[in-house]
């Protein structure tokens, strides 16, 4: 009964927390929290933001790999694996998001680990697929073979989720650490790398689209700046200004993830037959689920900034 109440009591708060990474954290500018004794709770919130980031990444992977592997007729049974892995990751990260207990969770850990491994192995599969096509590692096969880098989004989802668990693990402590490193720095590095990689993927496919629309340069230009600023903030945890700059760029990048879906929806409309010809254009037009990866990574970056802030305060 007590548990039930606790859960019910927690739910409204959790729902707010769910909304926060999606909108609040992006739009509102929370002031740097005063240095009080509530760091543990704040750290827990960071963990849940990380779960939110992992959730968005997992959702993007689920939709993207679902669509692309449907296009490939699930020719290889292994094509179902990322669907399963990303679904589990999504479930785990939503669970983590709603979970108030400042403790890591063995099942979630396992799922995140599985996702990361699936991402890595998947990328191997994709590289193998490209290599065996006539032409090998040519531009043509990079464009039309299994998309190299796409499975990395699953690796990132897993890694962000694992980071969330580690942060939560150390929630009681003042400074969460991952692999012996300050969590903020490591996470910042992860998010920055992920943003740069995802940007590179957008660059490849927008190059395939010949940058026919100038807006196609945005996801190539904007996230790398955010990544660089985040890296700088991590390198100088003692200074506030780099963090503030990084925060704004990351918020912009998070918004870009959503705007990208809108642009891609417009792109589908520009294909022959538009949305009426959805059965073709969803697959041949720009991929709807791809851009939100930027949002997921930006959220991870924003969470990293909070940890950096605390690390900076301590340092």
């Amino acid at each position: 009964m007590r548990m039930l109440e606790a859960r019910r009591g927690g739910r409204t708060g959790h729902l707010l927390d769910l909304a926060l990474p999606l909108a609040g954290a992006v739009l509102a500018a929370p002031r740097p929290p005063p240095r009080t004794g509530r760091e543990a709770r704040r750290t827990d919130r960071v963990a849940r933001h990380l779960h939110g980031g992992a959730a968005i990444l997992a959702l993007a992977v689920l939709a993207d790999s679902g669509l692309e592997h449907y296009r490939a007729m699930f020719f290889n049974r292994a094509m179902y694996v990322p669907l399963a892995a990303s679904s589990l990751t999504l479930a785990a990260s939503l669970h983590g998001l709603l979970d108030e207990r400042p403790l890591p969770h063995a099942a979630r850990d396992a799922v995140y680990g599985l996702a990361a491994a699936t991402g890595l192995v998947g990328n191997g599969f994709h590289l193998w697929n490209i290599g065996k096509r006539p032409g090998g590692f040519s531009w043509l096969n990079l464009f039309y073979g299994a998309p190299v880098g796409a499975p990395m989004a699953l690796l990132l989802a897993g890694a962000v989720g694992l980071a969330a668990e580690r942060v939560r693990e150390d929630a009681a402590a003042r400074r969460p650490r991952i692999l012996g490193q300050p969590a903020g720095r490591l996470l910042a590095g992860l998010a920055a790398t992920g943003l740069a990689g995802t940007s590179a993927e957008a660059a490849l496919f927008h190059f395939r689209g010949a940058y026919h629309d100038p807006f196609m340069f945005v996801p190539v230009a904007l996230p790398p700046v955010a990544a660089a600023l985040l890296a700088r903030a991590a390198a100088e945890p003692g200074r506030r200004r780099p963090r503030r700059l990084a925060r704004w760029w990351l918020r912009l990048t998070a918004l870009l993830g959503f705007a990208g879906v809108g642009f891609h929806a417009f792109g589908i409309h520009r294909n022959m037959g538009g949305w009426r010809n959805w059965s073709q254009n969803i697959l041949n037009g720009p991929p709807l689920p791809a851009p939100p990866s930027f949002t997921g990574l930006a959220l991870a970056g924003l969470a990293a900034l909070r940890l950096l802030e605390e690390e900076g305060r301590d340092g």
Partner: peptide, 8 residues
């Protein structure tokens, strides 16, 4: 070329 090659 102004646009990329088509899938073969």
């Amino acid at each position: 070329y102004p646009y990329r090659a088509h899938e073969v």
